[in-house]
């Protein structure tokens, strides 16, 4: 009877040990590390209704080969994309986007901010395979566009 009890005890402990030992081991996915600078909006030509959104730099990387890509979106619309083909990282500077990403400046006070134009949500995202994207968002407010109406000069 005692032998049976000991045998049962050993079997239970072995079973538990086996269950613990065979617990699958998953490598933790690497999250993207992002370094971003402040986005800005500029109205390079005062008489134009278009503004330009840009940022000084945006870099992202992973410590392993899971790096996928980075995106810049304005108000939910993707405007720039860099994939990690040759590197496990992406590095984007403002001048790499030419003059910047064009948006409408908007009329005076349109966003509710005095003496400013439209406000945009700029989203910077970094993606890696097997992990959730890392997302940074900022509200960027543009200078306003003052539409001028020129009346014809009528000569009598």
């Amino acid at each position: 009877m005692r032998v049976m009890r000991t045998f049962l005890l050993v079997m239970i402990i072995l079973g538990l040990t086996q269950a613990l030992a065979y617990e699958p081991v998953h490598t933790a996915p690497q999250a993207v590390t992002m370094i971003v600078s402040n986005p800005y909006c500029v109205q390079d030509v005062e008489t134009a209704g278009s503004c330009l959104i840009n940022l000084r730099y945006f870099s992202a990387s992973t410590s392993d080969s899971s790096f996928s890509h980075i995106e810049i979106a304005i108000n939910g619309k993707v405007r720039a994309n860099m994939s990690g083909f040759f590197e496990n990282s992406a590095y984007l500077t403002g001048p790499m986007l030419g003059n910047g990403l064009k948006v409408a400046c908007g009329g005076k006070n349109i966003s509710g901010i005095p003496d400013m134009g439209r406000q945009y949500v700029v989203t910077l995202s970094g993606f890696a395979t097997g992990s959730s994207p890392v997302v940074d968002s900022a509200n960027v407010t543009c200078p306003y566009y003052q539409r001028k109406t020129y009346l014809p000069v009528l000569m009598k």
Partner: peptide, 22 residues
């Protein structure tokens, strides 16, 4: 040595994108 190529859309109202490399 080649860095990652990228594509961006300077003006969303125009069907013109730009591909470049750092």
């Amino acid at each position: 040595t080649v860095s990652n190529p990228y594509c961006y859309q300077p003006d969303p109202a125009v069907d013109k994108c730009s591909i470049n490399f750092r």
